[in-house]
Simulated scan of single mutants.
Amino acid sequence: MIILTNKNWLIALNDLKKKDKILKKIINTYKSEKLKSKKDPFLTLAKSITGQQISVKAANSIWLKLEKKIKKINPNGILKLKKSEIAACGFSKQKINYLHNLSIFFKNNKNIEKKWKNLEDEKIIEDLIKIKGIGKWTAEMFLIFYLLRPNIFPQSDIGLLKAISINYNLKYPLNDKDINKFKKKWVPWSTVATWYLWRSLDPIPVKY
């Protein structure tokens, strides 16, 4: 299974810069930075749930409050907290339930990530969306930020679509034709293109 090793990241940069002049400028602006995995599947999914349908800044603020509440964010730690304590960090009732569902899943499925590492992207998405609270976008964040899969294009991601609109001078919201054009253009390195477009909007790198 191909993942974004340091070597593959450099190959991706060279390939994308040849394909896309605008992306080349963005890459050159942030060439010293790259996507990094947290190497913790539960944390990646929990933080992705936190970031659902809110800005990166808001998600980071909520997550920092949770980190102050709990010494180690893991399934046991989440389940030990009262729901009111999680709510005080800024989580909605719905997201609190999602975090609980995720925590129970990981408690009942030890080392599930070893299985996922050997599966194709679509099969992993199928597995993840069975957990209540995880949709396709959250599963795609997992593929990007934990498994470092190289060709993920999260086409429902508002940040990505806004970044394309701004950098390529296209009307927002983008139409399906434009979305499909970029989706095809960046194969097989859509993850790398997505990461740099996010970076073009945010003052700090996106992390899940």
Results as ranks from 00 to 15, higher is better:
174 L>D: 07
16 L>H: 04
159 G>W: 02
102 L>A: 05
171 K>C: 03
119 L>C: 04
151 N>M: 04
18 K>Q: 12
6 N>Q: 15
26 I>T: 01
190 S>A: 10
51 G>Y: 06
191 T>F: 06
72 K>F: 13
44 T>I: 14
60 N>D: 15
57 K>N: 10
55 S>T: 15
107 K>D: 15
107 K>T: 02
44 T>S: 12
129 I>M: 05
74 N>D: 13
134 I>A: 02
121 D>L: 04
11 I>H: 07
45 L>Q: 07
166 I>S: 08
100 H>W: 09
56 V>A: 12
134 I>T: 04
121 D>C: 05
169 N>S: 12
50 T>A: 15
108 N>W: 10
77 G>N: 13
32 S>G: 03
65 K>Y: 01
111 N>L: 02
193 A>T: 01
179 I>D: 03
81 L>R: 09
117 K>C: 08
130 K>G: 07
28 N>S: 07
28 N>E: 14
197 L>S: 02
49 I>H: 04
173 P>C: 12
129 I>G: 05
89 C>N: 09
35 L>G: 08
192 V>F: 05
189 W>Q: 06
177 K>Y: 08
75 P>L: 09
80 K>W: 01
197 L>G: 02
166 I>T: 06
141 M>W: 08
65 K>Q: 08
71 K>C: 00
17 K>S: 09
94 Q>W: 06
97 N>P: 00
197 L>H: 03
187 V>F: 06
95 K>P: 05
110 K>E: 15
172 Y>N: 14
60 N>V: 03
109 N>A: 11
91 F>Y: 13
22 I>C: 02
170 L>T: 01
158 I>V: 14
191 T>R: 09
84 S>T: 05
85 E>K: 12
40 D>Q: 05
